[in-house]
């Protein structure tokens, strides 16, 4: 994650909203050993307080798991579309 302020309020909201658009379970961790948290829970995602340069791990399980993982990784790689509200709301 390269976003300047890390997984703070706005990025957390975007990540959670995106995760919620998928039917599969989506989990997030800041270590590949976990602990895994529900990426659809805004309170838990914001609670990670992950700073810049944290490596985020995602795992998903369900019908649309591949699409979910691709979309979430892309969101993080795009720095959460900060500065480009229109794209994020599309």
């Amino acid at each position: 994650m390269t976003h300047a302020v890390g997984l703070h309020a706005r990025p957390s909201v975007k990540l959670t909203k995106l995760a919620k658009t998928f039917g599969c379970t989506v989990e997030l961790a800041i270590s590949n050993e976990g602990p895994w948290i529900d990426a659809k829970s805004i309170v838990k995602v914001m609670g990670t307080k992950a700073p810049k340069d944290t490596v985020l791990f995602f795992r998903a399980s369900g019908d649309d798991e591949d699409a979910a993982l691709t979309a979430l990784v892309e969101l993080v790689e795009r720095d959460f579309d900060e500065g480009s509200e229109e794209a994020a709301n599309a």
Binding site: A9, V13, T16, K17, K20, T21, K40, S41, I42, V43
Partner: peptide, 24 residues
């Protein structure tokens, strides 16, 4: 308000929206 609205934006029920806000 931010937590509740985030939860509501995904179509959650009123109970879940309130629980999410109160989880804080």
């Amino acid at each position: 308000a931010v937590m509740a609205a985030t939860e509501a934006s995904g179509g959650a029920s009123l109970d879940i929206v309130r629980q999410t806000a109160e989880e804080l």
